[in-house]
Design a binder for these strands. Structure first.
Lengths: 239, 239
DNA sequence: ACACGTCAAGTGGTCAGACCAGTTGATGTA
DNA sequence: TACATCAACTGGTCTGACCACTTGACGTGT
């Protein structure tokens, strides 16, 4: 059984970006600190200036540094300067361990937004989305034993709920949340198994949407999401 | 009374980035379309390749394009590929008009997250945050007539609530939401005036946090946030 | 002693042109 | 038909030069 991992090739500029981003996020490069000049960084990383600058542009785009023509490039306080897109980088510590506070935050946001999306879907979901949800219920009913397949269905299910909610913010946030816990996919797939298997709650959620009953949909969503939520919290406190 | 606006100088690479981003967001460059090669774009924009590449790196970082070594750079579907950081770019259409769906989404997310943050702040806010909130209440009590000052206090107030909630996701999301409606700050300041002036609701929210009563804090937050929410919705339907 | 131009040295921004490294698809072969 | 091959793309990296802006030290005047 070959257990090789695909080699992750990455461009020089991205590699530089990753290194600096990691140092900012873990506090090695504190907020307001001035980065060395591009010429100096160029030598330290052993790359050329173009690659280095591409990395800096990315950092700026993420809100991690502030570049000023003529002045020094400074580290920003990402807690006030960055957007949600930074989240996946806060999830894992330098040693690969989970950051408990971040994980808790993610789970809370998932529950809150998921519930609200369900409620709005009950108000606004177009027939097409409802049809899709019914189709997924049928597939869930088959009881797929494959954990991976289960995860796929779960993704598709919530995609439709959020789609039905007609809320762009929720749609974009969902992308980020997924990117976050995809980093520990195998663990998540295990912890979420109970939630994903709860056919009754899924049915109830879809019923709430079908009948246009926001509070029913919301309650079902909460019931569903809190299962994974508590499972994750339990897992965290075990360590 | 000089009414000059600060000239917004921007680097060539950022200008290129803005142009392409706008075209992707407004659909002129549809998802999956292949961008012209860098050499060609270089000529069309009349800039050098380094500047162009910096723009492309930013676009990639935002999830708007996918760059592949050797292959073409393609436009991605930002609805599934981008994170919340894209939001400020969806807010205004090409002609400067507000996108009603996006505005509604922002207000919904604000209400939902604000309420949940208040609830969690009631559970977890450290004494320091509570002190800060009390201080702000005192300032609000003075009844500042300046709209700008009012806006400042409002920002500080919710900063503390979210800080007290101990939720990183909410903190980062708040940054993005603010960046979004800062684009129409003068309008927002007007529509939010009622909400921001509601001293009683602010007091009630802080009381809920002080006494560690999540549901009380949540209810007060909802009461507060729904004022601006409905004001904005009313404004949208007027047009 | 202080306030204020001046200016050199440092910073990031842009440019040019070359070459490396992957991808793609047509082409010719088995 | 299936499959290697290869030329002509694509993006990635490098060099070195020069432009534009900021900073702070310095000297001049008050």
């Amino acid at each position: 059984m070959s257990d090789f991992q695909p080699v992750q090739r990455s461009s020089v500029s991205v590699a530089v970006f990753e290194q600096i981003a990691a140092r900012i996020v873990d506090g090695t490069l504190p907020a307001d600190a001035a980065l060395p000049s591009e010429r100096v960084l160029t030598e330290e990383f052993g790359v050329n200036r173009q690659a280095l600058r591409e990395a800096l542009q990315r950092l700026d785009q993420l809100g991690l540094v502030e570049i000023r023509h003529g002045g020094a490039t400074r580290v920003r306080d990402f807690r006030t300067a960055s957007g949600l897109d930074l989240l996946p980088r806060l999830f894992l510590g330098a040693d690969g361990s989970l950051d408990a506070v971040v994980v808790r935050s993610v789970m809370e946001m998932r529950t809150t937004i998921g519930a609200d999306a369900a409620a709005h879907a009950a108000r606004r979901a177009p027939a097409e989305v409802v049809r899709g949800l019914r189709g997924l219920l049928a597939e869930l009913d088959e009881g797929p034993d494959d954990v991976g397949r289960m995860a796929e269905l779960d993704v598709a299910f919530w995609d439709l709920v959020v789609e039905g909610s007609g809320n762009v913010c929720y749609r974009l946030s969902l992308n980020v949340l997924r990117r976050s816990y995809r980093q520990v996919a195998s663990l998540v797939d295990l912890l979420m198994l109970g939630e994903r298997r709860d056919l009754a709650a899924h049915r109830e959620l879809v019923a709430g949407i079908e009948t246009g009953d926001p509070e029913r949909a919301r309650a079902a969503a909460v019931a569903l999401l809190e299962q994974g939520h508590t499972a994750v919290l339990a897992h965290l406190s075990e360590e």
